[in-house]
């Protein structure tokens, strides 16, 4: 249970507003102001966190909204490349994404409301590093990489390594996320993301589970499987033991149930106002089973 004493905390914090016109400029500003600054794109997470006191007001907010050519969604030789500024709405309406990576469109569509998807960006959803971030489980399941830039150059990490804790990423000083790269998926691959919110829409995940599975040509065994859990650990986490169990088994209801059970044991949920740890753990089992079954059906 959250023990925070809630007495009106609404603030109108004062901060400097800086506008970067290019990635280079944004990185330079980040290097200059270091931990005293935040990047803002859609602002749907940052502004709320600043207003309700969940984060200490920064000295500067660096807007990257005006950086051009960073909202692309394109197919590069089978790989999907999404610019950090692509809005969630752009992603769920991209024909290419819907056709080749339907799981990504499906996950984006489950975030917030139309209004929020219109301004919220994929980069923001990931850099906010909420354990419940809806894009994270699916992208980790698909083996996505985060492309990171700084004034020093560019590097890539897997999205799995990108998250370090609630609100914490592996971005270093002067670094920003510029792109999400999703590898081409093998034949017979299917994916699903199942989210349990408190109500049907405009809500955070109480638990979210993504499964991406690649079956062999006979569709009896999984050559590759990823099960990723959201909102039940400090970071979106892979249920590795559950994956192992499924990888070595014949795909049937029994194996799926066993894998889902293992996933629920692997989860590290906490109790808060949205739900108890026990309930979340129980739901991982239900959602993991459903996600695996759906992914298998789509493979």
């Amino acid at each position: 249970m959250n023990t925070a004493v809630s007495v009106s905390r609404w603030r109108h914090p004062r901060f400097g507003y800086l506008e970067a016109m290019s990635v280079e400029e944004a990185c330079a500003l980040l290097g200059e102001h270091r931990e005293k600054a935040y990047l803002v794109a859609g602002g749907t997470d940052l502004m709320v966190a600043m207003r309700n006191g969940k984060i200490a007001p920064p000295e500067h907010v660096i807007s990257i909204k005006k950086i051009s050519n960073l909202s692309y969604i394109r197919d590069e030789g089978g790989e999907l490349k999404i610019g950090a500024l692509a809005t969630l709405d752009d992603i769920c309406h991209s024909d290419m994404v819907k056709e080749k990576f339907p799981l990504i469109a499906e996950s984006a569509r489950q975030i917030g409301s139309r209004q929020i998807r219109n301004v919220g960006t994929i980069g923001g959803n990931l850099c906010n590093a909420a354990p419940s971030a809806d894009m994270a489980p699916s992208l980790i399941g698909l083996g996505a990489r985060a492309v990171i830039r700084s004034t020093e150059g560019s590097r890539e990490v897997t999205l799995e390594e990108f998250f370090r804790g609630p609100g914490q990423t592996s971005l270093g000083r002067g670094e920003m996320l510029v792109e999400i790269a999703v590898p081409e998926q093998a034949p017979y691959t299917g994916g699903a993301y199942i989210k349990l919110p408190a109500r049907t829409a405009i809500d955070l995940a109480l638990v979210g589970v993504a499964c991406v599975i690649t079956l062999d040509a006979e569709k009896s065994k999984a050559s590759e499987v990823r099960i990723v859990l959201g909102a039940v650990a400090p970071v979106p986490m892979r249920a590795c033991k559950a994956e192992d169990a499924l990888r070595s088994a014949l795909i049937n209801d029994e194996a799926i149930d066993a894998s889902a059970e293992i996933a629920s044991q692997e989860a590290l949920p906490i109790s808060d106002v949205r739900g108890s740890a026990e309930y979340r753990r129980a739901m991982v089992k239900v959602l993991a089973r459903n996600a695996i079954k759906q992914a298998v059906a789509r493979a």
Partner: peptide, 12 residues
């Protein structure tokens, strides 16, 4: 929780 409103916003 002990006299305090825990979910004082439309998020929760």
């Amino acid at each position: 929780n002990q006299g305090a409103v825990v979910n004082a916003s439309l998020t929760d």
